[in-house]
Design a protein around this nucleic acid. Structure first.
Length: 654
DNA sequence: ATAGGGTTAG
């Protein structure tokens, strides 16, 4: 325009500024601002309003406020923009202040002003206040529109206020807002959060033309309600219909899988997503990383770490926190700490991630050290933080420290102990043999103990072979989770350890009549690009002959070092020699030996087991780590064991 | 002719 001798006027400039706002392009925005000032548009209220908006979109609230303060003609539009600006940042006090200032200035709020306020309270997590404002605007004579409804529904969902949600749903139908896609996805999300899966499905099925936002909200809602298989079905159906799936859709379905035990599926979907030409973003990554961690595939985890670095996602707090958790779960706690140390900024999630890592590795001193460091940095702990601290104490039998943090959490940090904290205390006390003290906590806790709490007591009763408390705990567990074979096994093992074979048989018969079988022990190990699964006592692995040969050789060496097979770990009524045989078939030993055969000397080995590692395997693997000069990482259901030079990181307490 | 608001993935 300039080169043709044309001069932009006060009608054209706002359009240019609007473009800057949409692109969040601060620099050209400032240039237009300068042009407007120089050319005498400084008192044009529409132009100034558009600049205020541009600065708000670019998160320059101070610049916006300065311009706003200098305006003489402020209408409801620019007031609303400022209110929404503060609201988006969660600065609700200031938003409310402006709302009142506006009224005092004789400018009446309109629908948009109210909507901006309500959105702000929702963003700040003040859901009940958002709902109160919603009621207030109605009594002020406003008819909420689709925008209002989609602002207020997330809050209703967060509070699980089904009744209010249904009222709003009714209002949506009455006002004919069901064709608004924003409203639909907000409704689906609300029902999903309230646990109303069937109502949610009804809403979804009635949609004429499904739009991507509603599909995404629906998939997340299904996953929230544990309906992963349905989510996958719906996902596939819409993919087959050649619907354009976006990064939210893919991230959502990947999360559903990794959060619900479908780790391989999550990894496959990540590949499909890229094949489909949808670029993962900083949200996709942390939803995928737990899948690698769960199956302990360090190779994949590292690949995703590299992917994050290449794509500039590493500075995202959630990405690096997820990596901290992944390395910890894959046994590489030093790498977790490294990720933590180089993070440019940290939040509660990052602190909890590193503390959880240390706790998982039984490093109580480091966990507690991080806890104090986090307090020192001014980060407030939450309930997860205390779970980590108490869990760490549990791993090291630190009863005094455990009591200290348990008592202080609500007193000093205003975090009320929940079920999991009581469960930690029960574990802590019963693991060190203070079974009666643990039982008295159970009796005194302010809510009905759940299966985790009783399960903690029962497994320690098994360790110390305490029959009377074991029977009490088992009786509760048989009611709480009648189909969990582990509880029957633990009680029958206590009977077996006392030679009470009649009782032992009675429990076995109970299991049989319920059609329950002992969960078979299995372990898996990643070798190169493959994961090998080994079942306890199973001889079907193609390399079984080599495994047995190597075991034979090792066993001679091991026995030379003075080791005796811990046949007391075998709780079956069989001969000593058979017991030795049974121990040799334990899946974790098979996995370790398979690893030794197939990797070059000195390479670390990585094994996961679906049950707790047994005493005998623990002792044997310690010796193997010394004989073979290998670091061996074994993750069982309870914790991490890092074997090196003949010792284990757990210090033989687990 | 020019300026304002919303949902869904951690």
């Amino acid at each position: 325009m300039g080169s043709r001798g044309l001069v932009p006027d006060s009608y054209l400039l706002p359009s240019a500024i609007k473009a800057c706002a949409a692109l969040k392009a601060l620099k050209p925005g400032r240039q237009v601002h300068a042009f407007a000032s120089v050319n005498g548009f400084g008192s044009d209220s529409v132009l100034m309003s558009s600049l205020v908006h541009m600065y708000l979109k670019c998160n320059r609230i101070e610049d916006a406020q300065k311009l706003f303060d200098g305006m003489c003609d402020r209408d409801v539009i620019v007031w609303s923009a400022m209110i929404a600006g503060y609201s988006r940042l969660g600065i609700v006090d200031r938003a409310k202040e402006l709302f009142n200032e506006m009224r005092n200035a004789g400018v009446e709020p309109n629908l948009v002003s109210w909507n901006g306020m309500i959105a702000g309270f929702g963003n700040a997590g003040l859901y009940d206040e958002a709902v109160m404002l919603f009621r207030e605007m109605i009594s002020d004579g406003f008819l909420p529109d689709g925008s209002t409804v989609s602002c207020v529904l997330p809050g209703i969902g967060n509070m699980k206020d089904v009744l209010m949600g249904e009222q709003v749903h009714g209002y949506v139908i009455k006002q004919g807002l069901e064709s608004d896609n924003f409203v639909l996805s907000a409704l689906l999300d609300m029902y999903g959060r309230c646990g109303c899966a069937s109502e949610m499905s009804r809403v979804f099925d009635e949609i004429d033309q499904t739009e991507i936002g509603s599909l995404n909200a629906y998939l997340t809602g299904l996953s929230r309600n544990g309906l992963v298989d349905t989510a996958l079905e719906v996902f596939k159906k819409f993919k087959a219909r050649e619907m354009e799936l976006n990064v939210v859709t893919w991230t959502s379905i990947i999360s559903s899988c990794s959060q619900n035990g479908k780790d391989m599926e999550a990894l496959e979907l990540f590949r499909d997503m890229q094949a489909d030409g949808v670029e993962p973003n900083a949200v996709t990554i942390p939803s995928l990383i737990p899948a690698c961690a769960n199956i302990s595939r360090l190779t994949h985890g590292k690949a995703i770490h590299c992917f994050s670095l290449r794509n500039g996602f590493f500075d995202d707090v959630y990405v690096s926190s997820a990596l901290i958790g992944m390395y910890a779960k894959c046994g590489r706690i030093q790498l977790s700490r490294h990720c933590f140390d180089i993070m440019p900024s940290r939040n509660l999630v990052s602190w909890n991630a590193i503390m959880n890592g240390y706790a998982m590795h039984g490093k109580a001193r480091e966990t507690i050290e991080m806890f104090h460091m986090m307090l020192q940095k001014g980060q407030k702990p939450d309930s997860t933080t205390f779970t980590c601290v108490l869990h760490a104490c549990t791993q090291n039998g630190l009863t005094e420290e455990g009591w200290h943090y348990f008592n202080n959490m609500s007193k000093e940090h205003n975090v009320k102990p929940k079920m999991e904290h009581y469960a930690c205390m029960v574990t802590l006390l019963s693991r060190v043999g203070k079974l009666e003290e643990a039982y008295s906590i159970i009796k005194e806790m302010p809510f009905e103990p759940d299966a985790c709490v009783w399960g903690a007591l029962l497994s320690s009763c098994r360790v110390y072979n305490n029959l009377s408390l074991g029977e009490i705990a088992a009786e509760k567990l048989f009611v709480l989770e009648p189909d969990n074979p582990g509880n029957y096994i633990l009680l029958s093992n206590i009977y077996a350890s006392k030679g009470m074979w009649d009782e032992e048989n009675r429990i076995r018969d109970m299991m049989k009549s319920k059609g329950l079988k002992k969960n078979p022990g299995y372990s898996w190990i990643e070798i190169g690009q493959r994961v090998h699964t080994l079942l306890s006592g199973d001889k079907s692995h193609p390399q079984m002959k080599e495994i047995l040969e190597k075991s034979e050789k090792l066993s001679i060496e091991i026995k030379k070092s003075g080791y005796l097979p811990m046949t007391k770990s075998v709780l079956q009524d069989v001969e000593e020699q058979d017991k030795e045989q049974i121990l040799c078939g334990h899946s974790e030993k098979l996995a370790v030996v398979l690893g030794l055969i197939n990797t070059s000397p000195g390479q670390p080995l990585q094994v996961i087991k679906n049950l707790r590692i047994c005493d005998d395997c623990h002792a044997v693997i310690k010796i193997i780590s010394r004989l073979e000069g290998r670091e061996i990482f074994v993750r069982d259901t309870n914790r991490f064991h890092h074997f090196k030079d003949g010792v284990c990181s757990c210090g033989d307490f687990w």
